[in-house]
Design a binder for these strands. Sequence first.
DNA 1: CCGTTGACCAGGC
DNA 2: GGCCTGGCCAACG
Length: 105
Amino acid sequence: MNSDKRLKVYKLLKKIPRGRVSTYGALASRLGMNPRLVGRILGQNSHPEIYPCYRVVRSDGSLGGYTIDSVNNEHSLSVKKKKLLRDGVKFSGERVEKKLIMKTI
DNA sequence: CCGTTGACCAGGC
DNA sequence: GGCCTGGCCAACG
């Protein structure tokens, strides 16, 4: 994958403040990419220690995905939720509250 | 060169 | 909210 595009995604990632989230689609439209491409970039090249990729969720507030140490399952999603809760993000059920989602960034 | 597969999305029921 | 549909586009075999 174009490492140029990866850099753009990661750079934008850092602009999401603690306690808020954005969506795959929002990042994608800001960068002129396809949402699926953003998802792939976050999945294949995530650096969980450095970049807060857990602050990206689906447009309806559901979690989307998360990958740690080549593990991608329900457990990894619970980790993602936990990180969000620690940031102060509020949930209604399994979805992030809509007002916390940044549609533009 | 295809067919399938995604950390997706908007629109309809 | 759930389920489907059609659209999207790069990666993989």
